[in-house]
Amino acid sequence: MKKRKYVIPGDVVAEGDYSPGPNTYRDGERILATKVGIAEIEDNRVHVVPVKGKYIPRQGDTVVGVIVDYNVLSWTVDINSIFYAYLLAKEVLRKGSLEKMAENKLEVGDAIVARVLAFDLSRDPLLTLRGPGLGRVSDGELVRVSPSSIYRLIDRRERLNKMIEEATGCKLTVGMNGVIVIEGSPEGTSLAIRAIRLVESEDRPDVLTKSIKSMFDMGG
């Protein structure tokens, strides 16, 4: 049984024998919210889905970032988070391929699709480019949305990202940090951006899927 309600910081989400999940804390018998969002109570667990917040890296996440600095050993990458991420040289270069190295040379301003290799709050996030689909973005457009809306875009049941790809003929690379790479025709790209903005502004799943469908029926 899932119960939902809107909360602001300090609101009592539950009282008694519940365990506090993300964005909540315990104060004596009470569990209080720490952010504006939707509180969800499932069995005896309580958490708040925030309406807004910065991306907190998690190991294994795919992210889209922009190179902002470099030195001998690493690149500094802005991943739209509370910290810059670091990409060590060994996570970029492939063994025994000097030509490839020159080809893949990363410069300040380049966008990359990367995976989070390691992160905890006491250390800056580390990225890797080793893996399928990772590397420099050579084509397309970057769209930034609130990181909390990414989950709606890639929801397994609704598959909105696939729906947008099919309707617009574009390829979407979704970074969990709220940055999306769109590759496709100019018209397809504009349509995809409009659809993504809709996903960002509407958080009711049923209404969202319907509006996306009707949008493509009309425009695409």
């Binding site: 602001i8 910081p9 300090g10 964005n23 720490t34 952010k35 925030p50 309406v51 807004k52 917040g53």
Partner: peptide, 11 residues
């Protein structure tokens, strides 16, 4: 602060 999503014990 609430608008920025900063975690707070209370308003």
């Amino acid at each position: 602060l609430a608008n920025a999503g900063i975690p707070m014990r209370d308003m």
